[in-house]
């Protein structure tokens, strides 16, 4: 894995990389320890705009490999926007515009020569609302394999493995050909997780994957996230602080206006944050 940005700075745009360096903190750097040793994703001075409104201001943080990184903060502070800028899902929003660097293995994904389709094959995504296709469970899980040309060999085995890893196989083993829409909300979300991991991406982005679920289904998803981090780099948005504290290794706290205020080990954020505003937010004084 590329862990230093030395080679990558030559491919990023001069304006954005010239004045920045991985070794020194920038004006934008949040409190805490925004640099990690084994970063898969590095955000450097990332600004995102929707039309004339700026939703993210100079986000500067690293996302470590095979760990769970939680993004927390009050709603509207730009967590989803940041997540979508990692796999360029923001490209699909007409008015969205991104400036600055978002590096994946040192390569700025906003460089002209980056193919967003190829990027998304390496960085899977699970959405806030379960969104299975109106197809069979099997076809849902196999969809990524098909579009990525990984459907040679035993697709069925790959489908079962993915369902197994998403802790869903036991429940749906006998109904792989029935519609994914027939499952309960929690099962649908695990189906979506199985669908995301089936093509074996490197990173999995999850946008409040449990917010639409009941407590039992939520705790299943939480267990799953921890397990997934053994093999995948997981970035999870949540507005549930207990959840972030339970499942994540690193926590990034975004606060109103689209600023990353503090980024550090999860323990540190929850036990002894540097920022008073973060402390207030975590202890529930505002938010």
């Amino acid at each position: 894995m590329t862990t230093n940005g030395g080679g990558s700075r030559t491919v990023s745009t001069p304006e954005s990389s010239g004045s920045r360096s991985d070794a020194t903190m920038t004006d934008n750097a949040p409190l805490g320890s925004p640099r990690v040793d084994d970063a898969v994703i590095e955000s450097r001075g990332l600004d995102v705009f929707y039309g004339d409104d700026q939703a993210l201001h100079g986000i500067d943080m690293d996302i470590p490999e095979r760990k769970v990184t939680a993004l927390i903060g009050p709603s509207g502070c730009g967590k989803s926007t940041f997540l979508r800028s990692i796999n360029r899902m923001n490209d699909l929003i007409d008015i969205a515009r991104v400036e600055g660097d978002l590096r994946f293995h040192g390569k700025n994904v906003y460089d002209d020569d980056v193919d967003p389709v190829a990027l998304r094959r390496k960085i899977g995504m699970v959405f806030q609302k379960p969104n299975p296709f109106p197809k069979s469970i099997r076809d849902n899980v196999a969809y990524g394999l098909r579009v990525q040309g990984k459907d040679d060999g035993d697709v069925d085995a790959k489908v079962r493995t993915a369902l197994e890893r998403a802790a869903l196989l036991d429940e749906v083993e006998d109904q792989l050909d029935s519609s994914g829409l027939d499952l309960s909300g929690g099962q649908q979300q695990r189906l979506c997780i199985a669908r995301a991991i089936a093509p074996d991406p490197e990173v999995i982005l999850m946008d409040e994957p449990a917010s639409a679920l009941d407590p039992v289904a939520t705790s299943k998803i939480e267990d799953l996230v921890e397990e997934l981090s053994e093999e995948y780099t997981v970035v999870i948005v949540t507005h549930n602080m207990q959840q972030a504290a339970r499942i994540s290794d690193k926590t990034a706290v975004f606060l109103t206006g689209g600023h990353l205020v503090e980024f550090d080990d999860t323990n540190k954020i929850f036990e002894n944050p540097e920022s008073d505003r973060v402390e207030d937010y975590i202890t529930g004084k505002f938010g």
């Binding site: 699909l92 094959r121 899977g124 959405f127 579009v147």
Partner: peptide
């Protein structure tokens, strides 16, 4: 057709 379905497919690397 809801955008959620499109996003699901785009997120899996569909063209």
């Amino acid at each position: 057709v809801p955008d959620e379905l499109r996003n699901a497919a785009y997120g899996l690397g569909a063209t």
